[in-house]
Design a protein around this nucleic acid. Structure first.
Lengths: 362, 362
DNA sequence: TACAAAAAGTAAATCGTTTTATCCAGATCG
DNA sequence: CGATCTGGATAAAACGATTTACTTTTTGTA
């Protein structure tokens, strides 16, 4: 056991400078140092300079823990997402982190791993940290245990992505409904009258919106349109079999002329299945996917997809939250619906569909 | 001043119970409450019970901020990854989070967004929090600014994934070298003598290992083997053109009989290119990818890939770190090399290659 | 029964900040 | 000239825990 020499212990850092060290070196009180650090103006320029010198000389940095302890606002925001392995939430968290930093906040991220029980627990944990506010992407919807816990603990929060506008919470979501309607516009407008709607879990609010938006617009445009909705909540392998079975039983004239797949994974599934059956895309069948991915511009054909405005959502979520936290806004909850973008690629486009219809007619 | 003052501010939660409230209610001192909370035995069962009752009655929970302030060990570990949008790091972080929680630690995650400057900054930030230890996945290698900063600040840390074993740091990585050697075994053993090695950036330590391991073993097995290495650091579109150009100039007998792609994205790129050219996999060309992904078991054909032991790595990283932090281990740095698993699927297998060779011979 | 040792309990110091209440020296004013 | 402000500065009180250094009780032993 090395003992005695405590200053330049090779393993341990020489005790970090505290605000007291700075104050002593600059010949002022800690209160003054604190003011300088936080940019408060009522300090004589000469003193401020000496403080800044001392800070530089000692490599002083504020300890966010100690700093947060006293004040009402600890300048931490919590973020809870259902899953960190999906690129979408990864990108969302990256955006949140960036936005939080820009406003001088720290962020604590946690993954609920698609468990509602864990979600509620994490909310409580965020409350333990006395976070200034929380950004919650609920596992299912704004009616889950996480959201209830937020209310129960009287926390400030913004609900993101898997929610529908609600009059009890601030919410930020992609406009799933409108985006799906736009897909309907594209496909119906291109002459498709038999469409497969294919997706994963029906559980989440977002998924309901995607389905609802498409069906409503499609039927509005042409009440006779045929929509086959195949949504399963099952394991990967079951999903694969399901889609395969569908195309087994829907051949020839019974085969839809377009597919709208409701998630990245569903899109890949459909793509592979059609490839295996050597169905030509987009000539024999058109494909549009919800949620864009890198690989969709690499495949052959490249895939038309709805891109979610993830960066915008992140920025908006932080903005809405901080508006409440800092400006003590107490007005009605706001619901932001960020528009999606449709990225037209080879697998489905207005142009191509028209020529297809023309061919049919001729 | 806060006497019987328990006003229930409607907007703000009724002031949270502190350890003092619990102590008063249970008729003991705060020190005793603290002992009970942290499971220290020297407390009379009767008292312990009354404390627990009070805790339950008041919904008391420890404030991790205040709790960490005093002690040497704040029970926080920091994690810095180059990127949160890739499923691999997402999974890694999820694993780290789980392991940290199991040991009663909080975790703070941050993304360096592939920037070495930011990496060093984040390390300093972690030090501000006085984390117990840091898990760093460097942008490039163990020789980057992040690692240097760790040393400069005298922090405890484990370097993960993009590093090679080093005598200054604890490290945990997938055994890229051995895994690539195993791929060489598979492909050379199956009779392939002309192989394309295709990948993204050559920057990271991991990538160098993947290339080195393959080339060394392949040449050891058969010095005459021809390996075309095509590694580019460019944009997506350039990469696509590069791979396309390669196959334009390597047709017929000049076309390799197998491809080993060094990243998920590279694998997808190759797959699409071969599809477009209607080259049959695995009959005309075999394909093995480094880094497994969900979609590889969904495509047609399914793809043989090297799966990284991400869960194991996460667990190991936390274990190694906590061994140093808690047991004050001061022994030599440990270097853990976690073995990868090869998942044989349709795109390349020993069985298939054999029959292929037989066909050739016949 | 008496006394030392061990166990249990506590007051107070501490961690590194922020915030509050106070103070002080000049400036302004009547 | 005395009273009132006022811009700057500060000592000291939080913040909510942990930990230290004692004190008090209980237990064990002679």
């Amino acid at each position: 056991m090395p003992q005695g020499d405590s200053r330049q212990n090779p393993r341990q850092n020489p005790r970090r400078a505290t605000i007291h060290d700075v104050a002593r070196k600059a010949g002022v009180s800690t209160a003054t140092v604190s003011k300088v650090m936080r940019g408060i103006a009522t300090v004589k320029p000469a003193n401020a300079d000496r403080v800044r010198e001392a800070v530089a000389a000692l490599d002083y940095r504020i300890d966010p823990l100690a700093s947060g302890l006293r004040g009402e606002n600890r300048r931490i925001i919590g973020a809870i997402v259902p899953d960190l392995e999906s690129p979408f939430f990864g990108a969302l968290v990256t955006g949140l982190e960036r936005a939080a930093e820009e406003s001088g906040y720290h962020m604590i991220v946690a993954s609920s791993r698609e468990s509602e029980a864990r979600e509620a627990d994490l909310v409580a944990r965020m409350n333990d940290w006395r976070v200034s506010g929380t950004i919650l992407v609920p596992v299912r919807s704004e009616r889950g245990p996480g959201a209830r816990q937020l209310k129960a603990l009287g926390m400030q929060a913004v609900l993101v992505d898997r929610v529908s506008p609600d009059d009890r919470y601030d919410t930020v979501t992609a406009d799933n409904y409108a985006a799906s309607a736009a897909v309907a516009d594209l496909l119906i407008g291109a002459g498709h009258r038999h469409i497969l709607l294919h997706g994963a879990t029906r559980n989440s609010e977002a998924m309901r919106m995607r389905i609802g938006g498409f069906e409503a617009r499609a039927h509005a445009l042409d009440p006779t349109v045929r929509i086959d909705t195949r949504v399963t909540d099952d394991t990967r392998e079951v999903q694969r079999q399901a889609i395969s079975a569908y195309f087994d039983t829907h051949t020839g004239a019974a085969r839809p002329s377009a597919v709208y797949s409701l998630s990245q994974h569903a899109t890949l599934l459909v793509l592979c299945e059609l490839r295996r059956r050597a169905v030509a895309i987009p000539d024999e069948i058109a494909l549009v996917g919800f949620d864009d991915a890198d690989w969709m511009q690499t495949t052959w054909p490249t895939i038309t997809a709805v891109a979610q405005p993830v960066a915008t959502m992140a920025k908006a979520a932080v903005a809405v939250l901080l508006a409440r936290v800092e400006r003590r806004s107490t007005s009605f909850p706001v619901s932001r619906l960020e528009p999606c973008r449709m990225i037209l690629r080879e697998s489905a486009s207005a142009h191509h569909a028209l020529s297809r219809r023309a061919r049919r007619g001729g």
